[in-house]
Amino acid sequence: MSRPAPVTASRPSGHALRAEGIAKAFVSGKVRTQVLDDLSLTIDAGELTLISGPSGCGKSTLLAILSGLQKVDAGRVIALGSELGELDSRALERFRLLHTGFVFQGFNLFPALSGLEQVELPLHYLGLSGRQARERAAQSLDEVGMTPRMHLRPSELSGGEKQRVAIARALAKRPELLFADEPTSALDAANGQTIIDILHRIARTHGTTVLCVSHDPRLIRHADRVLSMEDGRILSDQRPAPPAATPEGTAP
């Protein structure tokens, strides 16, 4: 498996994401549920940050807000120096196109397309030529070890393989920010481990800021930083000792 050179030579320092006093509530009929209340945090660039917590603690909402998929009721989010609240929906789409990648729990692959085409598709909208898009897609698939199976459709792939294609799709855009929502919870232990390794390596080699939401305890060992959430607040902020087996072995 060949590995392309990192997009940034040294890992960028500083904050990739900053949230200041954000609040979010959902109204269903007469019931108003405050999901996030006056929450502030910063996410460092080039790290794999894990947000964990029980279901309903607001971690997915936090991810949606930090990634610009949802608006806040109060407070502000600054991503890569842009305040997301000031962008209209078109500008937000443009921001996401240029800077962010997503990996979801369900793999959300088009049944009709091969792995290579799934990865190629968003690249065309970035303005890449057909050849460039194909080359970059093949490179990304190589990085997640899917080269031998990149011409197969989702129905011919295992869950782990589908998630690797989904990661390649997010990665091929070369985003500064990569958001992952429960990327391993639909997978068995071995496949889950593979996905964790890939996400970790992306943060290392590409200097990508990876923000991952999961309640999967296996992920904790691999994260650079773990935020525990409960009831819309952050309870703890830890940096676990790096596991000895990390490929690059350059934990902060």
Binding site: S67, E93, R96, F104, N108, P122, Y125
Partner: peptide
């Protein structure tokens, strides 16, 4: 295919 379309939109496809 609504989830796939939504994913494309998340990735910035308008």
């Amino acid at each position: 295919s609504v989830r796939e379309y939504a994913t494309l939109n998340a990735l910035g496809v308008g």
